[in-house]
Design a protein around this nucleic acid. Structure first.
Length: 571
DNA sequence: ATTCAGCGCGCC
DNA sequence: AGGGCGCGCTGAAT
C-alpha cells in the first residue's frame, strides 16, 4: 500500500492512494493513518517529496512511519546514475513543503520541535503556505518508479540494486528525523566536570581564557623568550611568524609539523592547541547551545556527501571528540548498546572485489590480525596502514612500503581499487555496490586534460593535468569503497530500526531506539532489561546487511557490541 | 558591519 | 604528492 503525501495548502496533509486524494487536517492525521493501516493490514509506504520537511510534523502529531520513499533523495541518486540534472519539478515541491524552514543556522535544531517555546519564537514557521503545490508528488512518484525500474543494460545498476538503495536511503531519512527528535542522552554535569578538570573553571567573562589554558600560554611565551601576551596563539599565520622570530623553522602551525621541532616550547604549545580546540569546539558555549534537557539534538543530513555518507549540522554530531564521549550517558535504568562494524571498509573492498584470500583473512573478528596471520605483513599496524593507503591512494611513507606485499597477497582487492583510480584518471564515473555513481569531473578538469595531450602543451601544463588526474583518481578510488560502506551501514541501520520497531507505537523514547549513527557505528538507548535483545538485533542486522549487499559472498561483517552506561566505556 | 577563504583539527 | 566531511577562528575583502 502506497500513500502519497503532499502538504495541504490550508494546513494538514493531502493523502493520495488508489482511492483518490483525501484532505486531512493536522489534528486528524493520527486517526486517519491508523484507519488506513487497519484497513490495509500492513504498514503503508509513505511516498513524499522530502522526509525532512514532512516527517517532523507527523511525528509531532503522534504518527510514526515505518517505511517511506523519499523522492528528493532518490532523485539525487538517479540523477547521478544517469548523469542528468536533478528533477526541477521536485525542487519546486520541496520548496513548497518546506516554505517556512529557515536557513540552517545555529539554532536550526529547535525548529523541528513542537514545544511551545519554539512556536513563540517564530510563529511564522507553523503557518501553512498560501499556495498549492506546483506539482503533486504522485506524478513525480510515477515517473520515478518507471525510472527506477528501467533496464539500463549490462554493467549498469540493476532495478533490484537501485530499489534497495532507494529503500535504504529513505529508511535513513526517517531515522535521521527520529534521532534528532529523541536526541542523544547527554550529561551536562559530566561534560562540565570534564571541562573544569582539563581547562579550569569556566571563566566569568565569555572571551577569557580558562586558567589552565592561560597558564599554558604563558609558559609557551616564557620558553620562547617572548613577553607575556605577545604570542598570538590562536592565529595560525601570526603564530608562524612569532615562532620564526623566535628562531623556529616552521612553515605552518600544524600540530604534526610542530611536533617534529625540537624546542622546549613545543610541548606546552601542542597541549595548548589541543585544549584550545576542546574549548572552542566542545566547550561551555557548545554545551549552552546544543544540549538541552539532557539531550544533544543535532540534525543529520542524509545524502549530504557525494559518496552517500551522511552529514550533520548543528554541533558536529559526526565529529564528537573521543575526549568528551563520557558525557554521553544512558538515563537511569537504561543502557547504551554501542556497536561498530569491525574494519568495515577493507571488508567492503574484499566483498566488492571478490578477493578470496582477503575474505579468508577476515574470517575472524579482526581482519588486520588475519592479514598478519596470512603472512602478508609483519604487524597489525602495517596491515592497517597498508589497507588504508590502498583505499585512499596513499603514495608515501609506511603505507606505500607495505603496499607491494598486500598486492601479492590480495591481488583482486588491490586491482579493484587500482581500476577505480584509473577510471577516475580517465574522467570516467565509477559506482558503488548498489549503483550510486560518482559525479563527472568538472569541465575545467576535462579542459586541462585535453590541453595536456596537445602538442602545444607546456611541461607545466602537462604536470598540472597529471596531478589533477591523479587527484580525481584518488577520489574515485575511495568513492567505490566509502560509498559501498555507506550503503552497508545504511542497510544495517535500517535493519536495526526495523527489528526494534514496535507496531504498538507509543512515544519513541519509551522503548529501545537509535540515538547515534556515526558512519560505521550505531548506538541504541535501551531499557537495561532489553540490552541482550538489542545486542542480538545489532548482530543480526549486520548479517542481514552483508547478505543483502553481497549475496553469496564469503566475506563476513562482524560487529563489536558493548552494553555500557557511558559511551566512553567501550574498549 | 558582514561575508568569505584558508587554516587547522575533530571524526570516519 | 591521503579519501570524505563540519566547525570555529582569523584576517582580508566587501
Amino acid at each position: 500500500m502506497l500513500i502519497v503525501v503532499d502538504r495541504r495548502p490550508g494546513g494538514g496533509m493531502l493523502l493520495t492512494d488508489e482511492r483518490g486524494t483525501t484532505e486531512v487536517l493536522a489534528a486528524e492525521l493520527a486517526a486517519a493513518v491508523a484507519a488506513r493501516e487497519h484497513e490495509a493490514g500492513e504498514p503503508p509506504r509513505w511516498v513524499w517529496s522530502d522526509t525532512a520537511a514532512l516527517y517532523p510534523e507527523l511525528l509531532a502529531a503522534g504518527v510514526r512511519v515505518e517505511r517511506c520513499h523519499d523522492l528528493r533523495l532518490v532523485d539525487t541518486i538517479l540523477a547521478g546514475v544517469d548523469g542528468r540534472p536533478p528533477e526541477p519539478a521536485l525542487a519546486r515541491i520541496v520548496e513548497f513543503v518546506r516554505p517556512a524552514m529557515p536557513r540552517p543556522q545555529a539554532d536550526a535544531l529547535f525548529d523541528l520541535e513542537d514545544d511551545d517555546s519554539s512556536r513563540r519564537r517564530s510563529p511564522a514557521r507553523t503557518q501553512p503556505p498560501a499556495v498549492s503545490a506546483p506539482v503533486p508528488a504522485s506524478s513525480i512518484a510515477r515517473a520515478q518508479r518507471d525510472e527506477l525500474a528501467r533496464d539500463r543494460g549490462p554493467g549498469a545498476p540493476t532495478p533490484r540494486d537501485l530499489a534497495l538503495l532507494a529503500a535504504a536511503e529513505s529508511a535513513g531519512a526517517l531515522t535521521a528525523i527520529e534521532m534528532q527528535r529523541t536526541g542523544l542522552p547527554w550529561s551536562a554535569t559530566t561534560h562540565e566536570a570534564l571541562l573544569t578538570d582539563l581547562l579550569g573553571p569556566r571563566p566569568d567573562s565569555p572571551g577569557a581564557r580558562p586558567a589552565r589554558l592561560a597558564a599554558l600560554g604563558a609558559e609557551v611565551e616564557r620558553l620562547l623568550g617572548a613577553s607575556p601576551g605577545t604570542v598570538p596563539l590562536d592565529s595560525p599565520p601570526e603564530l608562524v611568524k612569532a615562532l620564526r622570530r623566535a628562531g623556529l623553522e616552521v612553515s605552518s602551525a600544524r600540530s604534526w609539523e610542530l611536533s617534529r621541532i625540537d624546542h622546549p616550547a613545543i610541548e606546552p604549545l601542542l597541549r595548548y592547541k589541543k585544549l584550545s580546540r576542546l574549548l572552542t569546539a566542545n566547550g561551555w558555549n557548545w554545551l549552552d547551545t546544543h544540549v538541552h534537557d539532557g539531550r544533544f539534538r543535532p540534525s543529520y543530513v542524509p545524502g549530504a556527501v557525494v559518496t552517500g555518507r551522511w552529514g550533520s549540522a548543528g554541533g558536529g554530531a559526526l565529529q564528537l571528540p573521543k575526549l568528551i564521549r563520557g558525557a554521553v550517558q544512558a538515563d537511569p535504568g537504561w543502557v547504551l548498546v554501542v556497536a561498530d562494524a569491525a574494519q568495515l571498509e577493507p571488508r567492503i573492498l574484499a566483498a566488492l572485489s571478490n578477493d578470496a584470500a582477503m575474505a579468508r583473512a577476515g574470517a575472524g573478528e579482526d581482519l588486520y590480525a588475519g592479514i598478519v596471520a596470512s603472512g602478508a605483513v609483519e604487524s597489525r599496524e602495517h596491515a592497517k596502514l597498508g589497507m588504508l593507503g590502498a583505499m585512499y591512494g596513499g603514495t608515501t611513507g609506511q603505507s606505500a612500503r607495505v603496499l607491494p606485499r598486500l598486492q601479492r597477497a590480495f591481488p583482486d582487492a588491490i586491482r579493484f581499487v587500482e581500476e577505480a583510480a584509473r577510471a577516475g584518471e580517465r574522467g570516467e564515473r565509477v559506482r558503488t555496490r548498489l549503483g550510486r555513481t560518482s559525479p563527472a569531473p568538472s569541465e575545467a578538469w576535462r579542459e586541462r586534460q585535453l590541453i595536456a595531450v596537445s602538442d602545444a602543451a607546456s611541461a607545466a601544463q602537462r604536470e598540472e593535468a597529471r596531478s589533477d588526474a591523479r587527484s580525481w583518481g584518488r577520489f574515485t578510488r575511495n568513492f567505490v569503497v566509502q560509498g559501498s560502506a555507506a550503503e552497508w551501514a545504511l542497510s544495517w541501520m535500517a535493519g536495526v530500526r526495523r527489528r526494534l520497531w514496535s507496531p504498538l507505537g507509543g512515544p519513541l523514547a519509551s522503548q529501545p531506539h537509535l540515538v547515534l549513527f556515526l558512519h560505521d557505528e550505531l548506538i541504541v538507548h535501551a531499557p537495561r532489561e532489553r540490552a541482550l535483545e538489542v545486542e542480538e538485533v545489532m548482530r543480526a542486522a549486520a548479517a542481514d546487511a552483508g547478505r543483502l549487499l553481497f549475496p553469496g559472498s564469503a566475506v563476513s561483517f562482524p560487529v563489536t557490541v558493548a552494553t555500557v552506561d557511558r559511551y566512553s566505556d567501550t574498549k
